[in-house]
Amino acid sequence: MSGWIVSANDLAAGTVVYCTAGGWSGDIGDAAVAADRDAAKKLLAASQPAVRDNRVVGPYLVEVELCRGGPSPLRLREQLRHRGPSVAQAKG
């Protein structure tokens, strides 16, 4: 089953955040999931106050697959945003 979640970057820190039922979280598992396009539009609209309140930058919809562990992005770009770079920096 697929759906949509809303992601953005935290304004002050820049970190990747996901829109939850009551706010924002760095954990994709907390993300509020919209089951269809209409619900997705509403979810995106509901995230806008956080832009006006200078909490997040540039919220947008991310298509996800719903797995047991929670939502998992379909596109590679979003998988990388979620998991971090696929190449670990060698320890100095």
Binding site: N9, G14, T15, V16, V57, G58, R77, R81, G84
Partner: peptide
């Protein structure tokens, strides 16, 4: 303004 100072917003962070 931030770009003139070399600050981008990238995938994970600034």
């Amino acid at each position: 303004l931030r770009l003139m100072n070399g600050v981008y917003l990238q995938l994970h962070a600034y």
